[in-house]
């Protein structure tokens, strides 16, 4: 005779078994064991420092990035903007241009009585990224070493993340129809190289940094300079640190 009590007991046993079953199915198998490599994600936390006073707007980074990552022409993983901020009282309304993303540098454009400078831009590799929060399928994610990457085989191309990125760093690849963005040249930095844009920057305006490396010059850079990230009020945990960033920069 099965009493109600026994039926509840059986149900409770089944409930207890559920996590065990899940654990069984999620057990590590040889298929997803990490490939043999010396790169240890737990030992890195990638960032970049950019010195506005060194940027000459040559566009070498834009061309280098396109070469390295086969970025289709007209789309940009990194680009450079020219700011021309007029004098008081219009200093909050700068004129910003970026002809062809600065792929061919900047033609001269004189603006009298204006503060002019270049601002290189790229994915800020946010620690609390809005783009990751909106992805419905887990195709864009934050890695244990502090990058925001895209799983090209998993992305639906829904464009939620393109809208969510406050920095405009994402685009839909015209052929793959999936989202594409700066990876901080993950295929390079995991081999001990620097990103393509840092490698080809002739003035050293950009520097790749590893915040988990106590010997990295980034620590002195952050300590000794007035440093700002873009749109700090959005609390994205941006990790591209700008030195000498003007308040007119958005």
């Amino acid at each position: 005779m099965t009493t109600r009590r026994e039926a509840i007991k059986t149900a409770a046993r089944l409930l207890v078994l559920t996590p065990a079953a899940v654990a069984y199915f999620e057990r590590p198998t040889s298929a997803d064991a990490p490939a043999e490599s010396k790169y240890d994600m737990a030992k890195h936390w990638w960032a970049m420092s950019i010195d506005i006073e060194k940027c000459i707007g040559c566009g070498n980074c834009v061309r280098g990035c396109a070469n390295e990552n086969a970025v289709p022409r007209g789309y940009f993983r990194t680009w450079v903007e020219r700011y021309q901020a007029p004098a008081y009282p219009d200093e909050d309304h700068p004129e910003v241009d970026s002809p062809d993303g600065a792929f061919n540098g900047f033609p001269e454009k004189k603006k009298d009585n204006a503060k002019s400078f270049f601002v290189p831009k790229l994915c800020n590799q946010c620690a609390h990224s809005p783009c990751v929060q909106v992805c419905p399928v887990g195709a864009t994610f934050e890695t244990p070493d502090g990058l925001v990457l895209v799983d090209q085989t998993y992305c639906l191309g829904c464009r939620y993340c393109v809208q969510a990125c406050p920095y405009g760093c994402r685009y839909i690849h015209p052929e793959k129809q999936t989202v594409d963005k700066c990876t901080f040249c993950y295929h390079r930095i995991s081999k001990g190289l620097v990103t393509a844009c840092v490698e080809v920057c002739p003035t050293g305006a950009r520097t790749l940094a590893d915040l988990k490396d106590p010997k990295d010059p980034i620590h002195a850079f952050l300590r000794d300079n007035p440093v700002q990230v873009l749109k700090p009020h959005m609390a994205t945990g941006a990790k591209v640190y700008y030195k000498s960033l003007d308040e007119s920069v958005r």
Binding site: D32, P34, A35, S37, Y39, M41, G64, N67, E68, N69, G138, A139, T140, F141, E142, T143, P144, L149, V150, D151, Q152, T153, Y154, T183, Y186, H187, R188, S190, K191, L193, A196, E199, V200
Partner: peptide
């Protein structure tokens, strides 16, 4: 490692370099 496919990391790391 999180709400994503771990193999994607290896896919991205395996891309060829040009510089």
């Amino acid at each position: 490692y999180g709400h994503f496919r771990a193999g994607a990391l290896d896919d991205i790391r395996a891309r060829p370099i040009s510089y």
